[in-house]
């Protein structure tokens, strides 16, 4: 464990908690893409199956359980409890255009052709594009609530910190995982446009960002 991975995990946890609390406290999921949240729940489910097969550390197990729990709680709030506030008309990204190619790629490019490894690879590839429905929805509505932009900021920051963690681990441990790195670079690039808006609009104090 290094400081970059730890702050990355805490940034990820912050994003997940910020979103869950926002929906719970405002009792509304307006402006939130339910599709992205379903994809994240799928990412955690397929990646953390090793909870059943191997124990790495208390931290590792605890965080995985928290991530999975919050992901499903968020999906529940969006599609069940606060269904009336779900903005289905703007959450129209065709997720099958993400899941099918990612599923195919996981079969073609992986470290080991075993079920657990293919599911892990699928989750790595899927995570890199899972935010697209949310970014698409924001571009359609033309605005995002401040709290949603904070959620996206921490979510984007977490994988950017992981990129530094992988540089650190390559340099100090001679360890690298090309699949995780390439997917992490793609994932972080997708946030660049948003990061630019978040920083520039954030300074001007306007409470809504309007992606082009």
């Amino acid at each position: 464990m290094n400081i970059f991975r730890l702050t990355g995990d805490l940034s990820h946890l912050a994003a997940i908690i910020i979103l869950l609390l926002k929906i719970w406290k405002t009792r509304s999921c307006a402006g939130i893409s339910g599709k992205s949240q379903v994809l994240f729940a799928l990412v955690f489910t397929t990646r953390y199956l090793d909870l059943l097969t191997s124990f790495i550390s208390l931290y590792n197990t605890t965080m995985k359980i928290i991530y999975i729990g919050c992901a499903y709680a968020t999906v529940y709030l969006i599609y069940m409890k606060f269904k009336a506030t779900y903005d289905g008309n703007h959450d129209t990204f065709r997720v099958e255009f993400l899941v099918v190619p990612v599923g195919g790629l996981a079969f073609l490019v992986n470290h080991d052709f075993s079920p657990l490894e293919i599911l892990w690879t699928f989750s790595i590839y899927l995570e890199s594009v899972a935010i697209l429905p949310q970014l698409f929805m924001i571009s359609k509505t033309g605005e995002a609530e401040t709290i949603t932009t904070h959620y996206l900021f921490f979510l984007g920051l977490y994988r950017a910190l992981y990129l530094i963690n992988w540089i650190w681990r390559f340099y100090f441990e001679g360890f690298f995982d090309m699949i995780a790195i390439v997917a992490g670079v793609v994932q972080t690039i997708l946030y660049c446009d948003f990061f630019y808006l978040y920083v520039t609009k954030g300074e001007s104090g306007s409470n809504k960002i309007n992606p082009a």
Binding site: D9, S54, I56, N60, H111, D112, Y162, N165, D177, A180
Partner: peptide, 10 residues
């Protein structure tokens, strides 16, 4: 191999 080592990450 290195793949197993990734699995200590979230």
């Amino acid at each position: 191999g290195t793949a197993n080592k990734t699995k200590d990450e979230l």
